[in-house]
Amino acid sequence: MSLQLRNVALRLGEQTVLRDVSLELAPGEVVGLLGRNGAGKTSLLRLASGTWLPDAGDVLFEGRALSDFPRSLLAQKIAVVPQDLHVPFPFRVGEVVLMGRGPYQRWLGFESSHDIECAQRALERMGILHLADRRIPELSGGERQLVLIARALAQEPDCLLLDEPTAFLDLEHRIRVLEVVRELVASGASALLVSHDLSLAARCCERLLLLADGRVAAEGAPGEVLRADTLRRVLGFSATVIEGPDGLPLVVPELGRKDSVERGA
């Protein structure tokens, strides 16, 4: 098992954000994490990356608690793609992607030719090699997301945690991102993907995990989780779920039927 969360709970102030959530990621597997805004998806990702510690439960990587890993070693194993990139200083795209090599560097850390190669390959895979010398503040939101994914790829991780990596992207780039994730997983890594694009998630992920109010509301293969009644109960909208030509579910939202929606527990 590459990444394991066992019965984790998390409180922020008075509020319980996650309770009794368990999740396992096997090598070669992509798990999709779905849920409404504020369901606890990003918090779960923070626990999975060791950024925050859970108030209860365990988070293990390859059987070892995350808190036992030195930070740099952990960053060689687990890479995170956050929702957006805000830099107060005008770093170049290439510089930010090279920071993905940080866990492998020591002291002043001049980049080795291998580091450069990794960063270049990552840029190439995201199709943004031509942006390498541009300044981050000059980029569009979608371009910044591609940079963040390239940075995570440059980390050469065993486990990739992506927080809505395709939110600002056009369809072409969404597909490219998911293809890259599949490629990475095919070589033995694992991935956890937070997404609001249900149909796309169904095509990228082996399993889906539906989070509601800090609990696991549904879990299983895309066909088992993406059902009209579950969507209405947990995500709060009406949709028709049909089977696509690839045999995977397609979610077709129904507009104008909000009145019939009641919020799930």
Partner: peptide, 12 residues
């Protein structure tokens, strides 16, 4: 400069 969280996730 990328933020505390990103810095931690990049091994700092």
């Amino acid at each position: 400069a990328l933020g505390d969280e990103a810095a931690a996730q990049l091994g700092m």
